[in-house]
Design a protein around this nucleic acid. Structure first.
Lengths: 214, 214
DNA sequence: CGAAAAACTCAACACGCGTTGAGAAACTTG
DNA sequence: CAAGTTTCTCAACGCGTGTTGAGTTTTTCG
């Protein structure tokens, strides 16, 4: 036991990186602020106040406002995986699965949706956010294009992704009344057939959504 | 001629409001800046420099940055009318007409597209722009809902508008490579059937787009 | 304990922003 | 010309921002 670290060249002494509760508090406050106020309107001072921490602490843990934003905005792996599985399944009900995945991702629990909201709100003013959103839409293509019909499968997947992001934006950021008022099932029932048509070219007369009856 | 202004209580003398060339120059510079840089990143100093004018002149003609932005961001009546006619026609080829109207509006000549771009870029950070975009999407409903099928025609029109705005955003602001590379006709051919399905519920096997053959 | 390292506090800097006011210059009338 | 009115110039104010550095406290180790 005594010679456990003996061989290490530099045994670091002193206070170990603490429990990290402060850093986590800053991260939580920043995620909420960036998601609801956007990148430009979010100030480091406000984040620090929300976390009950000095301004300078924020700069010590995350070196700049951009790095703090980058730490917050990363698309959670869990959400990413759900998108992939939605795209990978069989063609039948593909549109419905994809629409549900997008709506769920942006309306689910805060820990999953807030980073996506921050990305969406920051995409216009922050280069990193714009690149991330671009890659997010673009990356759907790789999963959407594999094994799908035409050579334009990538374009189709990108279009579907853009359209669904547009719907989420209108609903959650712009606040278009008709979309805000509509419940999720109604949206799925209406949008799923169109997305299905975008992704797999062929039209059909069967019902696309399980319980979509009027 | 001499008694032309005689009856007026206050005959205003002195220099007449000049040719207004300066005001117009400011307006043009502001429109371009707000469209390409967004509301937050556009500074009055930069607009003044673009127009070759002192900063204080901008504040004299337009009383504040918000009022300058409002003067720039109004949706041009010509574009608005084209949207309405696109929605009003017969159901046949409705999707194609609507898709073409949206794409043309944001990719046409600068004088028409720049205000729309400014509105889109400002919608996240500026309340006025958000309200304008909200009304823009919402107002399509009034024209889209009249005489259309179900009672959810308003929702369908709002969804179609949101989806098309999403495509334009991905293409012109986010810069998704696949969408940037695709030419307009390809986009119309791919998207029109889906929009058609959103607007008029019924599916069909016929080709929606005239020259959309593979 | 005593030293090292991290966590934290406090105060300030430099910068760019929107905005304002005073005054000179240019032009239009009587 | 002279008075009146507008356009333009110049300089500054106040504010909030991201960011920094010095100094203090607290914890962890030898």
């Amino acid at each position: 036991m005594t010679l456990q670290r003996e061989s290490l060249p530099k045994a670091r002494r002193g206070r170990r990186p603490g429990a990290g509760s402060t850093r986590q508090a800053v991260l939580d406050a920043a995620r909420a602020r960036f998601a609801s106020d956007g990148f430009g309107a979010t100030t480091i001072r406000r984040v620090a106040a929300d976390a009950g921490v000095d301004v300078s602490q924020v700069m010590q843990f995350f070196r700049s406002k951009d790095e703090l934003f980058a730490a917050v905005m990363s698309v959670p792996a869990s959400a990413l995986e759900r998108f992939n599985t939605a795209f990978e399944g069989p063609d039948e009900h593909l549109g419905e699965r994809v629409v549900r995945a997008y709506l769920a991702a942006w309306e689910g629990p805060a820990l999953d949706s807030e980073p996506l909201m921050a990305m969406l709100r920051g995409a216009i003013v922050n280069d990193h956010a714009r690149a991330q959103l671009r890659d997010f839409i673009q990356s759907r293509l790789l999963h959407g294009a594999s094994g799908r019909s035409g050579d334009d499968a990538a374009l189709r997947a990108g279009l579907a992704s853009s359209m669904l992001v547009g719907i989420v934006t209108s609903r959650r950021i712009i606040g278009v009344p008709v979309l805000v008022a509509a419940d999720t099932e109604k949206l799925v029932a209406t949008v799923a057939p169109a997305i299905q048509r975008i992704l797999v070219g062929a039209p059909s007369q069967t019902d696309w959504v399980k319980g979509a009856g009027a």
